[in-house]
Structures are given as structure tokens and as C-alpha cells.
């Protein structure tokens, strides 16, 4: 299977526009409740990582 980077970027941008339109036309409470699920789960997941701060800084190229 070949990964089509350009097609993927186009699809992503389509979603970005679709979601921005949703945000623009719905209440702050509505869109932010949905966004909260995504952001909070990402942070919860990061908290379970076994990494050390040094590993993270190395990944960022800062160590």
C-alpha cells in the first residue's frame, strides 16, 4: 500500500474547514465540550507514559 501524502493533506484540510465552520456556527459551549474530550484524553494518555523529562527534551532536540 502506498501512502499518498498529498491526498492525506487534502483530506485533513477538508476536515479543518468543516470543523472551523462548525465552530463558527455553534455555541462556544457546544464545540468546546467536544474539543474537551479530545484534549483531556490526550493529556491523560501522556500522563501514563513511562518517559522521563530527559527523554522528552531529547526528542525535542533540546538536550
Amino acid at each position: 500500500m502506498i501512502f499518498d501524502r498529498k491526498a492525506n493533506a487534502r483530506e485533513r484540510m477538508k476536515f479543518v474547514r468543516l470543523w472551523a465552520e462548525y465552530v463558527r456556527t455553534h455555541s462556544d459551549k457546544d464545540w468546546s465540550s467536544q474539543q474537551k474530550v479530545l484534549i483531556d484524553s490526550m493529556i491523560q494518555s501522556a500522563r501514563s507514559w513511562k518517559w522521563k523529562p530527559e527523554d522528552y527534551l531529547r526528542m525535542k532536540g533540546e538536550l
Binding site: 462556544d28 459551549k29 468546546s32 465540550s33 474537551k36 484534549i39
Partner: peptide, 11 residues
Amino acid sequence: LDKVRTELDRF
């Protein structure tokens, strides 16, 4: 902005 607070916002 009448948004719901996320963990990121809280931090």
C-alpha cells in the same frame, strides 16, 4: 469566549 475548560486550560 464562553468555552468549557479543558485540562490544558486548567494547567
